[in-house]
Each structure stands twice: as structure tokens, then as C-alpha cells.
Design a protein around this nucleic acid. Structure first.
Length: 486
RNA sequence: GGCCCGUUGGUCAAACGGCUAAGACACGGCCCUUUCACGGCUGAGAUAAGGGUUCGAUUCCCUUACGGGUCACCA
């Protein structure tokens, strides 16, 4: 392995073709964790060599998201660094220069074959079910022919020259040693006719020039890695350490996708998930810390992260577990912080003046996502229509009939509470319970129903009475009485 | 189809030749309780199939099945 004194450098190299995908975010997270856990540097590079697939503004979303979740990159397009530029479209000259260097070394060559004839060939091969490979038509063009074609302005590409003989191999930290026959590899295009490099080439040149020591990326690149290794060898360079990670799936056979609306980081924020919970959850998808601890802050992840815990097989995204984890984060917050973060959602659900701190406290243990809040509070502004069936409670042995005579006593008990505080309300109602010689629930259950019109509310009758205030509480109880006597 | 990779409960996963195969989510039951949650206890549930190697295979090898990736002037 590498020496201890080497500085580890990892990178995240997304294409700005869409918003921040959770799979991409996880790859970035692993690259960040690995670098930081080894006192190394984490680099961001934008791979925008495909002119047609660019989506305006998405690079900015990438910067913003990484920063927001705490994956602070040491070098990158918007922060600079010693190996810039960090945007591939600004490095065109570098790729051409290196492609020519490779030609001189015999590992690449000009190819003037037209796109149409190549497509045709491919179709023929496909039809006859023969595996398709470029036929090296241009590999032995004479220097004169090349000069002539170039001076005529014939469109061309530069291809990697892969020997038909021999084998390549590399050791992946996750998948182990992978051996491939050169004969299965194609003379792939490394520089396109528009002058832009292909991923397979730019990637190698940039990783080398940026001093990347550990390449952490999705395992869809496992098959093309042998070609990358051959490029490194062609240049006379030592390949980096490879760490390929399995994909995140939506179902066993489908990846997380934009189409299903379950792929983007931003969507989850909108749905009320906390960024800390998202990071914690995706860290655990495809990687295991080994022990039984499941809640990790980012610094704790840096501390715990280890390549040996990365799984080889795909992981299915389980929203239920994310829900639970998000709930854990919510419950772990102190009351003040939860109140602050819940406030916008509380205001969305409740327009009247209320004790939002009290509401927040009641909500904290009851929700898994902040977006559940408005729905939980819908009874506060206006009492919903409800059926007297709600008074039926098996355990408390209550129903509409048994509750009817109790309701007025609840009203009068509460009327006498002058200081509308939790203790006072509690005391008054308990006194009533004692006086009636019944169970707590035989008073409190009907109170809840009368005040909320619901069987399930955050907090019980006493808390709701407190939230609604004395006047509204009494109004609703009287309304309940009327309804019962109708 | 060629090449590469993978397969432990419904899901995430531990175990790197010694197991009664952890733990978490989800699910069921019980307790707590004025509801629902939270919390506590508890239950059910897995090594894809078949062959080897071995005193002993989830762990090593082979075959089959299933799944994924890749075979672009996409990344």
C-alpha cells in the first residue's frame, strides 16, 4: 500500500446535468469522509465535457448542497486551489496536449472514420449478435496520410490504442483484484471531434494532474477502469487506488431515479427531512460501521468511516428507516431548537395566537417529519365536524350517552379556573374526577373529543385546553353539550 | 449476446473456517398511558439452489438460477 506520509486526496466529480442526486451525494460523502479521516484533501471537480447534457444552474446547486450538508471541499471551482481550473470545459488545452503526448508514445492515434459508417458497422454487428468493437481501421495510417487529412480539415477523433494481446488488472479496495483480457477492450475515443475529451480520458488526466490518490466513485465505472489503467500505463503513470461503491436502489432492480421523485437531496428537504438525518442515513446505505451505533454526526462519521465496511452489493433505499432516523434527530433536539425549526410549520397550521413553545413540546415526540406538523394541528383554528361516535372508548367505558351528563360538569369545573395554567386545569379536573368517583379518562377523553373533534391529538385534553385558551375551551365544550343533547 | 460484478430475514446489515447466524427499521404481542406517539419488554422472520474442499462451511472452489453494470464522439 501507500506510504504513511503521503497526503490523501480524494475528489467528487459530478456532471452538472441535474440536481444533487442522493447516490452522488453519498459518493461525495464517502470521498469526503475518507479524505478527512486521513487528514487529506477533498476536491470538487465539475465534469462538463458533454456540451449537450449541461443543465444551467446545476453546478451551483452542487456547490450549495455540499456546503449546506458540511462536505466542505478544500479545492473546487468556486473556492480555487493549486490544481485549477476545476471545471473540465476550462481545461480543453490540457487534454489535447495529453492526447498528443499519448500519440507520440504509441498509445493513441488519429481516427478519421465517419460517425455514420461506425454506426452502420455497429448495427450490423448487433444484428448478427457479434460483439461490437471498433476495427482499428485508422491505427496504421502513415504520417503523410494523417497530415493530409488534417490539412484538408477532415473531422477526426483521437482513440486509445489498446493492444490485442495481454491482460490488465487492478486491485479495487472493495471488489478485490479484477483481471481483464485486453482483447475485450475497445480502442475508445479519448478526444471527440468537437475537441472535448471523453469522460474516460479527462478523468485520468485530471485525477493525475490534481494529485488524486484515491478514486471513489460508483461501480458503474468498474468495467471501464481497466481502460483507465491502460491510459495511466500509457503515460507512464502510477494508477490511483480505486474504491468503487455499489449503487443505491429504489427497488431490487431499479436505481433511485429522478422520474420517481425519490432521487434528489432537495426533494427530501422539501418533504421535511433534516440534512443531518439524510447524511446519516445514506452513510449507512452500502457501508457499515461494524458496531451497533447507528446515529452519527458528520464528525463521528469521519472518525468511524472505513473502506472495509463498504458493501459490494446494491442497497435498497428504505424510506421507513429514514423516517425513523429523522424522528430520532427531531427527538434529540433540545426544546428551543426544535421550537425554532418547527415554528414555520406550526404557523402554517395555526393562524390564531397560541403558545407555540407548548405546541412544539407536544409535537416533538410525535412526528418524524416537520411537514407532518400542520396536519396535526388542524383542529386548533377551527373545530372539525365530528361524530359523537368518537366518545365511545372501550377501555374507559364511555360513549355519547355516558358522556352527556358529564360535559356540563366539565364546563363548570373549568369555568372556575381563574388562572389558566396547566397545574390549575389539571387540579380542577382531578377534583371533578374524584367528585364523580370515575376514572381520569372518563373526564379527559370526552374533553379531548369536545375540544378537538379528533381521537388522536398531540397532547391530551388538558394540554389542548391550555393551547386553546379558556374562552375557546368553554365555547367548544358548550357546543359539544348542545350536540349531545340534540 | 461478450466481458465484469453481485446474492444472509420484507429492508439496512454483523459474522472475514467453529453459531443456538448479532443488531436496527418495518411488523405482531404486552407494559406505561386521558388518545396517538415516545419509552420499556417480548415474538415471528434469513445464509438463492446444487455440488465439491475441510473434522467443521454464511465464510474457500465449481456449476446453475436470479439481479446489476458495461460494451456511445454520456458521465
Amino acid at each position: 500500500m501507500k506510504g504513511d506520509h503521503m497526503q490523501y486526496r480524494t475528489r467528487f466529480a459530478p456532471s452538472p446535468t441535474g440536481y444533487m442526486h442522493l447516490g452522488g451525494l453519498r459518493t461525495a460523502l464517502y470521498a469526503y469522509l475518507y479524505a478527512k479521516g486521513n487528514n487529506g484533501a477533498f476536491i470538487l471537480r465539475i465534469e462538463d465535457t458533454d456540451q449537450e447534457r449541461q443543465v444551467e444552474g446545476t453546478a451551483e446547486v452542487i456547490y450549495k448542497t455540499l456546503t449546506e450538508v458540511g462536505l466542505i471541499y478544500d479545492e473546487g471551482p468556486d473556492v480555487g486551489g493549486p490544481c485549477g481550473p476545476y471545471v473540465q470545459s476550462e481545461r480543453i488545452g490540457i487534454y489535447r496536449e495529453h492526447a498528443e503526448m499519448l500519440i507520440k508514445r504509441g498509445h493513441a492515434y488519429y481516427c478519421f472514420c465517419g460517425k455514420e459508417e461506425l454506426d452502420e458497422q455497429r448495427l450490423i454487428h448487433q444484428a448478427s449478435r457479434v460483439s461490437h468493437k471498433y476495427n482499428k481501421h485508422c491505427v496504421n495510417l502513415s504520417p503523410e496520410e494523417i497530415t493530409k487529412k488534417l490539412s484538408e480539415g477532415t473531422s477526426y477523433v483521437i482513440r486509445q490504442n489498446v493492444s490485442e494481446e495481454g491482460k490488465v488488472f487492478f486491485n479495487d479496495c472493495v471488489y478485490g483484484r479484477i483481471d481483464v483480457d485486453n482483447s475485450t477492450l475497445e480502442d475508445q475515443i479519448i478526444l471527440k471531434s468537437d475537441g472535448f475529451p471523453t469522460y474516460n480520458f479527462a478523468n485520468v488526466v485530471d485525477d493525475r494532474l490534481m494529485g488524486v490518490t484515491h478514486v471513489i466513485r460508483g461501480n458503474e465505472f468498474l468495467s471501464s477502469t481497466p481502460k483507465h489503467v491502460l491510459l495511466y500505463e500509457g503515460f507512464g503513470w502510477e494508477p490511483p487506488v480505486y474504491i468503487h461503491v455499489p449503487p443505491i436502489m429504489r427497488t431490487a432492480d431499479k436505481k433511485l431515479s429522478k422520474r420517481d421523485g425519490d432521487a434528489y437531496y432537495g426533494d427530501f428537504i422539501t418533504k421535511g427531512y433534516l440534512k443531518e438525518a439524510i447524511i446519516n442515513y445514506i452513510a449507512l446505505l452500502g457501508w457499515s460501521p461494524g458496531g451497533e451505533k447507528e446515529l452519527f454526526s458528520l464528525p463521528e462519521l469521519v472518525e468511524a468511516f472505513d473502506i472495509s465496511g463498504i458493501s459490494k452489493s446494491p442497497a435498497i433505499f428504505d424510506i421507513k428507516k429514514l423516517d425513523w432516523l429523522n424522528g430520532e434527530y427531531l427527538r434529540a433536539m433540545d426544546d428551543a431548537e426544535f421550537h425554532a425549526r418547527a415554528l414555520p410549520y406550526i404557523k402554517e397550521g395555526v393562524k390564531r395566537e397560541t403558545d407555540t413553545a407548548l405546541i412544539a413540546k407536544l409535537l416533538k415526540d410525535r412526528i418524524e417529519r416537520l411537514t407532518e406538523i400542520p396536519g396535526q394541528l388542524d383542529f386548533i383554528d377551527t373545530l372539525p365536524e365530528y361524530s359523537s361516535e368518537l366518545y365511545t372508548h372501550k377501555k374507559m367505558k364511555t360513549d355519547a350517552e355516558s358522556v352527556r351528563p358529564v360535559m356540563p360538569s366539565i364546563a363548570s369545573a373549568l369555568e372556575n379556573v381563574s388562572d389558566w395554567r396547566q397545574e390549575a386545569i389539571h387540579e380542577a379536573l382531578m377534583a371533578l374526577v374524584e367528585c364523580l368517583g370515575c376514572k381520569n379518562g372518563q373526564v379527559l377523553w370526552p374533553l379531548r373529543v369536545a375540544l378537538s373533534g379528533k381521537a388522536q391529538t398531540p397532547g391530551g385534553g388538558i394540554e389542548i385546553a391550555l393551547i386553546l385558551g379558556k374562552e375557546e375551551t368553554l365555547t367548544r365544550i358548550r357546543r359539544a353539550s348542545d350536540k349531545l343533547n340534540r
